[in-house]
């Protein structure tokens, strides 16, 4: 049983990926024991018609097997009337959360609209995913070249909205261990393992962060799904902690939203 909190549908802007058609991605997820996957859309990177992106995402997720895919809608805080996109994610599509791509959309977490968004998510009882990066800056396409999201503004903002669960996607190595542990211990901030590296890196990470703040994430289909799966094999850890990471923490997170 595994909940993958970091997958995406549709097309990567500068490359076709072996699993960028939803049925093929679903087949691979199932093959590796993924029972639920929280999916954003690569279309959100460049498209301005975010309402259409989210509509397609919701439709695509609804036709996948047994509710495997949970849509994480896109909101671009630099587009006019983004609040309407958020409302539609909540009211029309019944999404549990949204995913932000601040680097691609050109703002930082110190943007006042970000604080406003946190307030609305709190009212809607939705979770927030923030992609700290989508791709290593060293390999980005020249026309899509952006920096990692700066996390420094986050600790103080989270104090004002302690009830909103925030999942940082692809946050290693941008989140240094000091900041990561501050976020994980002082707020409802979670990290997933797609970009966690190093020899037996997960084994090391559970010494640095509370295991209840770690989630399974693959960044498939841009990354190989097998990368996240094999990380569990490379690191030795007590079975209860492995269960927390693969699905229990994510389940608990969702339960608290539903209460």
């Amino acid at each position: 049983m595994t909940i993958d909190v970091n997958v995406s549908l549709s097309r990567w802007p500068s490359r076709r990926l072996p699993l960028d058609e939803t049925p093929r991605l679903v087949e691979r997820l199932v093959r590796h024991g993924v029972t639920q996957a929280w999916a954003g859309s690569f279309d959100a990177i460049l498209h301005n018609d975010i309402a259409a992106v989210n509509h397609r995402l919701a439709t695509e997720c609804s036709i996948a097997d047994n509710g495997l895919l949970w849509p994480m809608g896109a909101v671009n805080l630099k587009l006019p009337n983004w609040k309407d996109d958020l409302k539609r994610c909540h009211e029309t599509h019944g999404m549990r959360g949204i995913r932000l791509l601040p680097s691609s959309h050109g703002y930082g977490l110190d943007d006042p609209e970000f604080a406003e968004l946190l307030g609305m998510l709190s009212d809607f009882r939705m979770l927030l995913q923030i992609a700290i990066r989508l791709e290593d800056p060293r390999t980005q396409h020249r026309l899509l070249s952006v920096k990692d999201v700066e996390l420094a503004p986050l600790p103080s903002l989270m104090k004002e909205h302690p009830d909103v669960p925030v999942i940082l996607l692809n946050a290693f190595p941008a989140a240094n261990s000091e900041l990561a542990s501050l976020l994980a211990t002082s707020a409802r901030v979670y990290f997933e393992i797609a970009t966690l590296e190093g020899l037996a890196g997960l084994e090391k990470q559970i010494q640095l962060l509370p295991p209840e703040r770690l989630l399974f994430g693959s960044h498939a289909p841009f990354f190989m799904l097998e990368s996240a799966v094999l990380k569990l094999q490379e690191s030795a850890m007590p079975a209860p902690i492995q269960k927390q990471i693969t699905h229990e923490n994510a389940e608990l997170l969702i339960n608290t939203l539903e209460k």
Partner: peptide, 18 residues
């Protein structure tokens, strides 16, 4: 390229390839 990388992420490129 361990120890900077994991065996996992790098093996996955091959084991998961089509």
């Amino acid at each position: 390229d361990v120890a900077g990388r994991s065996f996992a992420s790098q093996l996955a490129k091959v084991t998961g390839a089509e």
